[in-house]
Every structure is written in C-alpha cells, then in structure tokens.
Simulated scan of single mutants.
Amino acid sequence: MIQQIYPSVPHPYRYELNKDMHFAAAHYIPDERAGNCSELHGHTYFANLTIVGNELDECGFLVNFSLVKKLIHDRFDHSLLNGHADFTGDKQPERYPTTENVARTLCELVQSHLDGMANKPICSQVFLRETPSSYVVYRPAAGAVI
C-alpha cells in the first residue's frame, strides 16, 4: 500500500477514520472530446475514504474498516464502470465514469449506508487516484452533509 498524506479539512468531530483500498476497473468516457479516454481502457484505482463522527457503535468502531471496503471493492472491482447503473447515461455528463463522478459516487454510496447506522457517521472526503499522477478529491458541498 502506498504511504500517502491526503489533503484534509478541519472538522468538529472527535473521530476521523481513513480507509485505503484498491480496485481494478475499466471505463470509457462516451464523448469524443475526451480524446483517448473515449476508448475502453482500465485503471487500478486507489481510494481513500474519510469518515468522521462523534459516537462509536456497539463494537467500539466509528465504522468497521471491512464494511467500508466491502461497499466499494465488492461493487466495482474487476468491472466495467459504464455497466453500473450509477454510470449509465451517454448524454448525461454527470453520469459519465470520470474520476470526479466516480469519487462523488463512492461518497454517496458509502453515505447512504452510513445514514442507516445509529451512530450517524459521515463520509466527509473521498480521495481517488486514477493514475500515479492524477487524482481527485471529492467533498460533499458545504452544508450538504457536515
């Protein structure tokens, strides 16, 4: 695993959990303006999810690390992103599987699960590296979640 220092934002929560993971996936951007990215190709994505909160669950976790990995890895590893309902929309750029949209989707998927937890943790940031030299940081809009 790469040792990485991630950008972070000060927050008022007592706990901050960070989970690193890899997943391999193929995609294409269905727009000729995307250049080479409009052709089918793959990446080994590296993701870091930051989850914050004030309360621990009945096991003493903010969130179980393995749950976070399962939510992402089991869904997207060794798949074609364009084949997922989250990224189908040939005329909807907000649903193209760009790194930006994938990072946002990871945050939304995790947050959807977290919303059902009694201790109410929050996914505050997703760092998604597509290549060794290109990454995106996604944070929910101010006031939207935190």
Rank of each mutant, 00 (worst) to 15 (best):
146 I>E: 13
75 R>M: 09
121 P>R: 10
42 G>A: 13
31 D>V: 04
32 E>I: 08
101 N>L: 01
6 Y>S: 00
32 E>V: 14
59 C>S: 15
88 T>S: 13
34 A>M: 04
25 A>T: 08
140 P>W: 09
57 D>G: 06
57 D>L: 04
42 G>E: 11
15 Y>S: 06
67 L>V: 08
135 Y>L: 15
138 Y>N: 08
120 K>H: 12
40 L>K: 06
1 M>C: 10
141 A>M: 13
89 G>T: 00
12 P>H: 14
8 S>E: 13
7 P>C: 11
12 P>Q: 15
105 T>H: 15
79 S>P: 04
133 S>D: 09
82 N>C: 08
125 Q>F: 05
133 S>C: 10
107 C>A: 14
123 C>I: 10
129 R>H: 01
90 D>A: 14
70 K>F: 00
135 Y>T: 03
44 T>D: 15
82 N>L: 02
52 V>S: 12
86 D>L: 05
35 G>C: 09
80 L>Q: 09
3 Q>F: 09
51 I>T: 12
95 R>F: 05
101 N>M: 13
99 T>K: 13
132 P>H: 10
71 L>P: 00
138 Y>V: 13
53 G>I: 06
27 H>I: 07
50 T>A: 13
96 Y>H: 03
21 M>W: 05
131 T>E: 11
85 A>K: 15
85 A>R: 07
40 L>Q: 04
25 A>W: 01
24 A>K: 10
35 G>H: 07
36 N>F: 08
95 R>T: 06
54 N>G: 14
145 V>D: 05
39 E>S: 13
66 S>T: 10
6 Y>D: 05
142 A>N: 10
110 V>Y: 07
103 A>T: 09
114 L>E: 03
122 I>N: 14
136 V>I: 08
29 I>K: 01
78 H>W: 07
55 E>C: 12
145 V>N: 10
34 A>I: 02
81 L>R: 00
87 F>C: 15
80 L>Y: 15
10 P>K: 04
65 F>N: 07
131 T>P: 12
34 A>W: 01
122 I>D: 02
65 F>S: 01
119 N>L: 00
56 L>P: 09
73 H>S: 15
44 T>K: 10
64 N>M: 00
98 T>V: 12
67 L>F: 10
135 Y>N: 08
97 P>G: 07
56 L>G: 13
